[in-house]
């Protein structure tokens, strides 16, 4: 428990002080997106890593959060904070309602059902032109503000988004350490065993699905108010896949791993810009190689790799000595 607290404090301190070393610049803007994707990846990780329930339609909740927040503020001039609360509650309700039928399914069937859900929601964003603006998107979404402070610069948005990230992570770590977290892990290992032990499997799965939806909607709302423009393309199937990749690369079940995954997948394209057309190839290769050689994700993979390298170096040294 103490270790978890330490980890969290170090993380929070790093987040709060990071901008001091960055002196503004565009990297702060990238970090705003890293923050949004961290919330999304943590949300998916609660579902996938903790409870073992796959979702290939996570972008649907992300998009719903963004659109509810966006439409309420841009079209109906609602207060952005009120809109955010409404978005989060509404998406939570939707996830709760959808969770009961969908989470009856397991494994590949669950993957397919959530994938279908994601694509249907995406098509709805595209087709309800009168509400969402359709494929050309919705613009004119206002920034969030507190008192006189309007979150309209990268630096302000950085602190806004990352405060939410810290809260999300705190809640998620607590959740996974709690009795509920243990029950969820039991479901992950064996649903039947969990049921025998008296865990209300169905309700618990739906609840974690709802929590995951709520966090995703929060990220969506933050996205809408920082970018001030949303279009369906930002919430498509490929985004769901990207989120899945973040979780896997970071490490299933590891909350901080999700942050790592989100950071790497958001920063990687920035580095790849020099590759221009080749980046899609590099991206595919990195994805395959990382999953092949670090199936536990970076969080477990890097220490393992370091250890095995160390062993090899030691072996090399000793063999040199013997020569």
């Amino acid at each position: 428990m103490k270790r978890e607290l330490m980890k969290f404090l170090v993380f929070a301190a790093a987040v709060l002080t990071a901008p001091l070393f960055l002196k503004g610049g565009y990297i702060v803007n990238v970090l705003v997106f890293v923050g949004i994707y961290t919330i999304l990846a943590v949300a998916l990780n609660l579902l996938l890593g903790l409870a073992g329930q796959i979702s290939l339609g996570q972008a649907a909740f992300f998009g719903l959060g963004a659109y509810i927040s966006g439409v309420l503020t841009a079209t109906y001039a609602a207060n952005p904070w009120v809109a955010m609360v409404i978005a989060v509650i509404a998406v939570g309700a939707i996830a709760f309602a959808l969770g009961f039928p969908i989470l009856k399914l397991k494994g590949h069937y669950l993957a397919m059902a959530t994938l279908g859900m994601g694509i249907i929601v995406y098509i709805i964003f595209n087709e309800t032109v009168d509400i969402t603006g359709g494929p050309s998107g919705l613009s004119g979404i206002p920034n969030l503000s507190i008192g006189g402070i309007v979150f309209n610069t990268d630096m302000k948005n950085y602190y806004l988004v990352w405060s939410f990230v810290i809260v999300t992570i705190l809640l998620s770590v607590n959740l996974s350490q709690s009795r509920i977290g243990r029950a969820l892990r039991a479901i992950h290992d064996s649903e039947v065993a969990a049921r025998i032990l008296g865990v209300n499997v169905r309700l618990l799965k739906v609840q974690i699905f709802t929590v995951s939806g709520i966090f995703s909607a929060l990220a969506g709302s933050l996205y809408a108010h920082t970018v001030q423009f949303i279009s369906p393309a930002s919430f498509g199937f490929n985004v769901s896949i990207e989120l899945l990749t973040m979780v896997i690369i970071g490490g299933l079940g590891s909350i901080y791993g999700s942050f790592l995954g989100a950071a790497i997948l958001t920063l990687l394209p920035e580095l790849f810009r020099t590759f221009q057309d080749y980046d899609i190839v590099v991206y595919g290769t990195v994805l395959i190689v990382m999953t092949m050689f670090m199936p536990g994700g970076l969080v477990r993979g890097v220490p393992l790799l370091a250890r095995s390298l160390l062993v090899r170096v030691k072996a090399g040294l000793s063999s040199e000595k013997s020569v």
Binding site: I248, I280, Y283, G284, L287, I288, T291
Partner: peptide, 10 residues
Amino acid sequence: VIITIGGSIL
């Protein structure tokens, strides 16, 4: 599943 997704991208 992730590997096949990576393969398809590649």
